[in-house]
């Protein structure tokens, strides 16, 4: 039996890569491969999942480079935090003035705001310039966000440092059981990085459809969903707007959709939420989306 005769989820990874690249999905040029689904009764629709919702009552934490709260496409923050290193080397998460010299976190926050305008956004700055130290800051920021009980944690980033893998996996599992949904960018380079390949998080790569609410389930994990990631209108420096491409900007689309679903169905657990995402995905909920319904 050739690899292509196997279902997508059972095909072996290409072992000559050190990591598993989450290639994006150019839906505009490549037809989707059909796959089998069980619809679980068929009652769940996109309208049931998030119709009429705006994210109100849901707390979303953006772990990134900070967020410019004054940017018109962000529209204010609930809280702004920073990871600070004390004299003894320990890292603490403390309140700070909202800001973002790099602009990446602001761009991501603006996407969440565009999808879920009613959600309460918090920024935790875990990224800074230079090559060192960001892994420890990431762990500190993520630990804080889980302990604070955020409903959704957006991580448009990953670390390639293997020494943080186990700690990130433990934190991701902890978040999963505490009903904090981590939405993480998949890596589209053949390197090992974390936390996106973990089963306890919701991982996201890009498709090239222009609809912000269109997303697809990927039957060939580890990356599980594709969201809009090409020429995404995002907040740019100086109150402007940029068109940006990358998994960093696909991820907050799914984070925003999670906020919409949770604002309408407050008691969903992370595994229920992922199931709702799966059942409402374009290629699962829509008959011609590439799936075969049994």
């Amino acid at each position: 039996m050739t690899d292509l005769q196997l279902p997508p989820w059972r095909r072996p990874p290409r072992d000559h890569f050190p990591g598993v690249p989450a290639w994006s999905m150019p839906v505009s040029v490549v037809p989707q491969e059909p796959f089998d689904i069980s619809p679980l009764g068929g009652h769940l629709t996109q309208d049931w999942a998030w119709g009429g919702a705006d994210g109100s009552g849901v707390r979303v934490c953006v772990l990134d480079s900070g967020v410019d709260a004054e940017h018109p496409l962000v529209g204010g923050l609930d809280r702004a935090m920073d990871v600070v290193r004390a004299e003894d080397g320990t890292l603490t998460v403390t309140p700070t003035e909202p800001g973002d010299t790099a602009g990446h976190g602001t761009a991501c926050a603006s996407v969440i705001r565009s999808v879920a305008p009613g959600a309460a956004l918090t920024s935790v700055r875990v990224l800074s310039g230079g090559r060192h130290g960001s892994g420890a800051a990431l762990l500190a920021g993520l630990t804080w966000a889980i302990e604070e009980g955020y409903d959704v944690i957006n991580m448009s980033l990953s670390t390639t440092k293997a020494e943080f893998c186990d700690a990130l996996r433990d934190l991701s599992d902890s978040a999963y059981f505490r009903r904090c949904v981590i939405v993480a960018s998949a890596h589209n380079m053949p390197v090992r990085s974390y936390p996106w390949p973990f089963a306890s998080v919701i991982s996201v790569a890009s498709h090239d459809s222009p609809d912000p609410m269109t997303y697809y389930y990927n039957p060939s994990p580890p990356v599980e969903f594709y969201a809009r990631g090409v020429r995404v209108p995002v907040a740019g420096p100086g109150g402007r707007q940029l068109l940006s491409t990358g998994n960093s900007f696909a991820t907050p689309h799914i984070a925003g959709i999670c906020a919409l679903i949770l604002s309408k169905h407050r008691s969903l657990t992370p595994f229920q939420l992922k199931s709702v995402l799966y059942l409402a995905a374009e290629n699962v909920a829509v008959p011609d989306g590439g799936a075969r319904v049994d």
């Binding site: 990953s158 420096p237 940029l242 940006s244 491409t245």
Partner: peptide, 16 residues
């Protein structure tokens, strides 16, 4: 910072 590739297409419209 993010360890991810990125493309920005209208840089000239962003003065900064």
């Amino acid at each position: 910072m993010t360890g991810q590739p990125v493309v920005v297409d209208d840089v000239a419209d962003s003065p900064q």
